[in-house]
């Protein structure tokens, strides 16, 4: 009985860990959609690039014999965020801004093009093989009976929780309290009006992409280290899942993205725990379709009123 509880708890922890990382990536999707109504297909690749930069930095620092853990982690995180933001900003400027205001299909296809371009860029530069990501935060707490089932909560999992919570809190404060955040909310509500009121919408949209990319980079570093290896393909799948999470929570709503990510992570974990590991991926898509059919605005979104 006690063992069943621990098993449940462990799978819940597993799900929450991954879910919170999904939430970070989902925020990027939701912010962009909320402001310009576009699904940024290339967001998953930004996540992947973040992971690569983090690994490159960690390896580079190790070569320079800098191994003091907090320093290494912070530098890697910051550099990953900077490079990813650079990609995000350039992506918006080059591939999306010229297409704003036209047919909705065009930016979507452009996004797909950017996604392929980025993925192959990294693939050509770094090779297609899986590259190991060293685990720098080792150790864990264990609960339960060593002879029975022992639930395990690793420090790495704790780190992921802490970092994601800090990011989410920081973002929420930023959006609600700062001037730039207020401007973001205004542009999300009504782009034309915000423009008329003197807000530089170009700058705000660019800022949205930058913030989303930075968060994706954080997730990339965290998950890369948690799982253990990275390759150029893994951004795509993660991106799709995070996108599902964003839609699940209500696309356009930041708390929705956070909730959606967590719900998705936990759902996946429980599906593989109690049903079968095979259908883990199917669950995400099924959830997505069910939500879209019965509550298209998602869990926390506002129902869209169709005006004739």
């Amino acid at each position: 009985m006690h063992e069943q509880m621990l098993y449940f708890l462990q799978q819940l922890l597993n799900g929450l860990t991954v879910g919170s990382a999904y939430a970070l990536i989902a925020i990027g999707y939701t912010m962009v959609y909320g402001i310009i109504g576009m699904i940024n297909f290339a967001h998953g690749e930004i996540y992947m690039i973040g992971a690569y930069i983090a690994l490159i930095t960690i390896t580079g620092l190790a070569t320079l014999n800098i191994t003091f853990l907090p320093v290494v982690l912070v530098i890697a995180l910051v550099l990953a965020m900077i490079v990813s933001s650079a990609f995000g900003w350039s992506m918006e400027r080059v591939a999306y801004r010229p297409l704003r205001g036209g047919n909705r299909l065009n930016p979507l296809i452009s996004a797909i093009g950017v996604s392929y371009f980025l993925k192959n860029y990294v693939l050509l530069a770094q090779g297609s093989r899986d590259i190991g990501f060293p685990l720098l935060i080792k150790g864990s707490w264990t609960f339960g009976d060593p002879n029975g089932f022992e639930a395990n909560f690793s420090y790495m999992q704790l780190t992921i929780f802490i970092v994601t919570i800090v990011c989410m809190v920081a973002l929420t404060l930023f959006i609600s309290k700062s001037r730039l955040g207020r401007a973001c909310r205004a542009v999300a509500q009504d782009l034309k009006m915000a423009n008329l009121l003197g807000i530089d919408t170009h700058k705000i949209i660019a800022a949205t992409f930058v913030i989303g990319s930075a968060l994706a980079a954080v997730a990339g570093m965290l998950l890369g280290m948690y799982y253990g290896s990275i390759d150029p393909e893994f951004g795509f799948i993660a991106g799709l899942k995070a996108f599902t999470a964003a839609v699940l929570g209500g696309i356009g709503s930041i708390p929705g993205a956070m909730l959606g990510g967590i719900v998705l992570g936990v759902a996946e974990s429980f599906t593989s725990a109690y049903l079968s590991t095979d259908y883990k991926d199917v669950v995400s898509f099924l959830l997505l379709i069910l939500i879209l059919l019965f509550r298209p605005s998602g869990l926390l979104g506002k129902p869209e009123v169709e005006k004739i």
């Binding site: 080059v94 591939a95 010229p98 297409l99 036209g102 047919n103 065009n106 930016p107 296809i109 452009s110 797909i112 093009g113 950017v114 996604s115 392929y116 371009f117 980025l118 993925k119 192959n120 860029y121 693939l123 050509l124």
Partner: peptide
């Protein structure tokens, strides 16, 4: 062949910008 996908992505973006 290695650069094929790269050009493909680039082509999609350029097509959308120049001749949608």
């Amino acid at each position: 062949a290695q650069y094929r996908m790269l050009f493909f992505g680039l082509l999609m973006v350029l097509m959308m910008i120049w001749r949608p």
